[in-house]
Design a protein around this nucleic acid. Structure first.
Lengths: 222, 222
DNA sequence: CGACAGTTTGAACAATCTCAAGCCGCGTGG
DNA sequence: CCACGCGGCTTGAGATTGTTCAAACTGTCG
């Protein structure tokens, strides 16, 4: 009885095997702004997000920050080596399923369907990461922001949520760190999109896509 | 009897199971500049690189290119959905082990150790991709080039090859597309490193790291 | 009501790109 | 064996995108 069962990695586990999973799982809550994974610390747990939004980020010594991804309900977090290579912070109140890393290999042995699913997800994430590298290396500010809005919108649709007014649970700074820009440039790009009629901003964190074809053209496909 | 056995995914397959692998494998050769994976085409095969160097790249409609990674002996290529999300081109003459995608799932069922290994590699690649996103989003040109040289050098060392004179099998343009810069900026950065005594350039494609600590400082860790 | 975090806007600045030209090394053909 | 041509590399000067620094605005929460 998990809200995100249908989207999460558990979706491939047969009902009669669920108890295997349940035995090693702890449900954890995190308030907004809680940092529940710290870059560099021993990777003790894997997480499956059942509710809320999370940002995953990395820091450079001088304080520069890169947001490596935003995660939502159903997403899996924690594929890593011995230590976390990233930090994770709750953007909203968040509910998490937590698996101890030690027991995880046994778990995979017992639930081969989940292992296969995990490989599939890792592969999807890799694909998304490659797309993001292309964005960061070769797209202009406008193209980046347009791509970002469209991909958030289609993610919502994939989850069966409304794809059009897009809620942004993250700040402009988070978006900037995700897109390799500054807060100011992100903000300017939003207002320029608004002035050109591509979007409407009811509030700063609620974007209505009023001209998807135009945005799609700006984003150069995807 | 494969040159790259020790580094490749096959390293975890027991000797008595090797015939299972051998049955579905074809050895393929590619000459330099051969594009043997085409973005957007049905993903028919997985590859394990046994000799040579490969660049993996993506194109934007207007011709802009992003190099998503360079692969060397022992590396695995092809985790993807139904269609390849990238192209792959041989930088040098290359030898490949090719697995048909259709038989791959059966293969994983029979060789669980290989599936586990694959998950580990996907996880490592993901980590590298995140590092690269940080580089592309938040590092300066000098930092990017320094990071690039150091990571090539340490990859060589990990493979038991000499880590110091680093051979660059790719062109300046390839490096630029990998680092989100232009050919000119890459070239200028190389000569500036040379003038500052951090490297020596015997030829354009052979770099001697004469001041690793300095480079490491320029790269901001890693 | 006041404070504060987040957002927006403006103007000057700088890193990197663009365009253009010259250089180098290498393979080819005379 | 040497001249030629070509691709890739380097260098220069000017243009541009996005950054930086600074200030005003908004709305949310005590």
């Amino acid at each position: 009885m998990c809200e995100a069962r249908a989207f999460s990695i558990c979706s491939v586990v047969k009902n009669e095997d669920l108890h295997v999973l349940a035995r090693s799982t702890t449900v954890v809550e995190a308030a907004g702004c809680d940092v529940f994974v710290h870059e560099g610390e021993p990777a003790g747990y894997f997480f499956s997000i059942t509710a809320g939004a999370v940002k995953v980020f990395k820091l450079l010594p001088n304080g520069r920050r890169g947001v490596v991804g935003f995660l939502f309900e159903g997403d899996f977090l924690g594929l890593a080596g011995e230590r976390y290579a990233f930090s994770a912070e709750a953007l909203t109140p968040v509910r998490l399923c937590r698996f101890p890393r030690r027991r995880f290999c046994d778990l995979l042995d017992r639930l081969p369907a989940m292992e296969r699913e995990l490989l599939g997800r890792a592969s999807d994430e890799l694909k998304a990461a490659q797309e993001q590298m292309l964005l960061l290396g070769r797209k202009s500010a406008k193209e980046r922001v347009a791509s970002f809005l469209l991909s958030l919108s289609s993610r919502n649709e994939r989850l069966g949520l409304p794809g059009n007014p897009v809620r942004l649970p993250m700040t402009r700074t988070d978006i900037a760190d995700y897109l390799g820009l500054t807060t100011e440039t992100v903000s300017r790009t939003f207002t320029s999109f608004r002035n050109e009629g591509h979007i409407r901003l009811a509030e700063a964190s609620l974007v209505q896509l009023t001209d998807r074809p135009g945005l799609r053209a700006l984003a150069i496909a995807h």
